[in-house]
Design a protein around this nucleic acid. Structure first.
Lengths: 248, 248
DNA sequence: TATAGTTGTCTATATCAATAGACAAATTAT
DNA sequence: ATAATTTGTCTATTGATATAGACAACTATA
């Protein structure tokens, strides 16, 4: 982020090649390593990071596997991926409109749905009795064919019965809520954290183990403040940044 | 966050004991492992995570070192640390007021300051010419004696000459700006990301290697929209969550 | 006092991670 | 063509990581 030459840490439980892979990803996101251009040669990177060339090769191999780099014998190693998407978060956060201009196509895929009793956390957020039925949707946000978010969403089953079918049809939360006479809604609260991606997220978001996800826990409400939706979303930190829009 | 039994990943560059240490920290933050109570015994944890007891012991040893757990032979291993601080972010984000109620004491320590030419990124954010002098402050936010944030802040050197001394005296950005006739300011933009902590952050925030930091890049402006401050802040994800306040 | 349950220590073994060096293979520049 | 540059492959060695088993030390309780 800043041009600080932060050094590599040894014997900390995170292997050097993983740390260096992270640094390279960061460099790409920051524009230090330009898209379609060659990375510095392996010996130069090894010297820069103070490690053996083979260690750098391991990091590069992981990123090649991940589809971020392409190595060509005799020529060099080239940057494929582009900068991070900037995902806006504010009172009127919407998946599709938020990524307009940065992507040509985006939609939400419904992975699965189920009905379950509300635990304390969900009941409080939705303002319903603990144990009453809620609909749980597992969704993945995709932009230009790439997964950019993975969310778990809960609705009051009584009020939004059948929302899973509408969601599967339309691929949009906003459109689905319209069928329940909710033409507008606001984001009431968002709590943000970060952690290593778990096994499910790794698979669903097409990430490599060790990746970091940004986690938002949000409550959406109607214009008169009635809670309608509780959601936990995970964003791959290497591909997405969150832009907080204060006004709006 | 959610009660999903996410599994442990092997040969991904992050050692098993580090992954399990993260999971335990997460469990504490989520309230799965209650403060002052005993953790499940090592054999139970080993079975839960599908690893050897010695691997769990390595994870626990790291957390004992970190001051999160205390192990007592014959009795058990006990949780010392409390849940995450919730740091509010909004138009009127202020360090001190934001943590009121969660902590008894907090202040900002000035670690160092310097004057340097503005790079493109800083110049654009502050609306000044590239290369003109800016004051850079390195600060650490502390609450109840524990570091909770680490920030790098830039001011236009021309307009805010000497702000580093004021900052050192008062320990408050808000108070320092008052001396420059700025009685109120707003947060104009915030961009959020996450990454592994670098070596400097590890030292300054008293973290163990492999820890994740939340990163905010923010611009503060006067009431009439004039940019006055550009800052990058790092928050340890295991100790702090960010609460976005839309209204206010 | 016994006993069960827990953390602490020790040995041993296999695999992963990192370093080191040498050379092959492919590309680009001279 | 030749040389220089760069990625690819191989062998070897060292230390960290993970598993396995056994037993000691300590605590609580029946």
């Amino acid at each position: 982020m800043i041009g600080l030459a932060s050094s590599i840490e040894r014997r900390n439980g995170v292997s050097l090649w993983r740390q260096i892979a992270d640094r390279i990803l960061q460099g790409i996101a920051n524009g230090d390593f330009v898209e379609n251009a060659a990375l510095p040669p392996e010996v130069a990177l090894a010297e820069r990071y103070g490690v053996n060339r083979h260690t750098v090769r391991n990091a590069i191999a992981a990123l090649v596997q991940e589809g971020v780099l392409r190595a060509e014998q005799g020529r060099g190693t080239f940057v494929l991926s582009r900068k991070r998407l900037s995902y806006p978060i504010g009172a009127r956060t919407r998946f599709s409109t938020g990524l307009q201009g940065q992507t040509t196509e985006r939609h939400i895929a419904l992975l699965s749905s189920s009905t379950e009793p509300a635990n304390r956390r969900i009941a409080e957020a939705l303002g319903i009795a603990r144990g009453s039925a809620v609909i749980r949707l597992e969704t993945r946000g995709e932009a230009d064919g790439h997964p950019v978010s993975r969310a778990t969403t809960w609705f009051d089953a009584k009020r939004f019965a059948g929302i899973e079918t509408t969601m599967a049809e339309t691929g949009s939360i906003t459109a689905s809520l319209k069928r329940f006479a909710i033409n507008d809604y606001l984001r009431h609260s968002t709590v943000l954290s970060a952690r290593h991606a778990d096994a499910d997220d790794l698979a669903d978001l097409d990430l490599q183990p060790g990746a970091i996800v940004l986690v938002t826990v949000a409550v959406n409400v109607t214009l008169d403040g009635q809670p309608i939706q509780f959601a936990e979303s995970r964003f791959p930190a290497e591909r997405v940044e969150l832009k907080l829009s204060v006004n709006d």
